[in-house]
Design a protein around this nucleic acid. Structure first.
Length: 207
DNA sequence: CACCAGGCAAGTA
DNA sequence: TACTTGCATGGT
């Protein structure tokens, strides 16, 4: 994957807050639509902890319209801000000092933050050695016969983490490369240059 | 036109 | 517990 795409150096975001916002906005959504929403938040001067807390939710929803599911995502952003405010006094530095396991639990307690979003925040915003699993990860591992179709998020995460060094830089690149590979080759390609041993076949991904 | 994208929660039986 | 449905824009 490195040969095909090079190192990725994710997340495409400049600050921890921007990464957290992007993690929520990209849920089941094309990143290009998310970029527009984030650009818009910057234009409107809304991409700060303070502004996100104060902006009326309907105005926030309108600002992130291009990311889709905008009403739900506006609420989810508010939920995240509220969590940081109530648990860490709105202090991102204090949040940064929290233990990884405790922080993960806290994030998962926020309505609208599930395992992938929580782990994306932990890895890409907080640089914690947490492997991020997504739909591509599941699809690729299943096609290679490495997991059962029914394997859970935690099953996949445990598999990676049991076999890799606890290195945030490695996890960063690995997940990003899986996404790149999935986007480009795992849909309807007859062959994948990243993994020449596997011929996906011309039919549907899950066949 | 149909299908999907870096999910998650709520509803139903 | 095990499925199903809603959420929504924008690109292919």
């Amino acid at each position: 994957m490195i040969r095909e795409f090079g190192h990725q150096h994710w997340w495409p975001g400049e600050t921890p807050l921007e990464i957290m916002v992007g993690a929520i906005l990209t849920q089941n959504t094309n990143w290009r639509n998310v970029e527009k929403a984030i650009d818009n938040l910057k234009q409107l001067d809304l991409l700060s902890f303070r502004a996100l807390g104060e902006v009326p939710i309907h105005r926030l929803a309108e600002a992130i319209r291009s990311a889709g599911y905008y009403n739900i995502k506006a609420a989810r952003l508010k939920n995240l801000i509220h969590f940081i405010q109530s648990a860490y006094g709105g202090d991102l530095d204090k949040l940064g000092e929290e233990e990884t396991a405790a922080l993960r639990e806290g994030l998962l307690s926020v309505k609208g933050i599930g395992p992938e979003t929580a782990d994306s925040i932990l890895l890409y915003a907080m640089e914690r050695p947490v492997f991020v699993v997504d739909a591509y990860t599941h699809r690729i591992l299943h096609r290679h016969g490495l997991i059962e179709e029914e394997a859970s998020y935690e099953d996949l995460q445990a598999l990676f983490m049991a076999h890799l060094n606890d290195d945030p830089r490695l996890f960063n690149d690995f997940h990003a490369l899986i996404v790149m590979t999935g986007k480009k080759y795992c849909k309807k390609r007859p062959a994948c240059p990243v993994c020449p041993l596997i011929n996906w076949g011309p039919t549907s991904p899950e066949s």
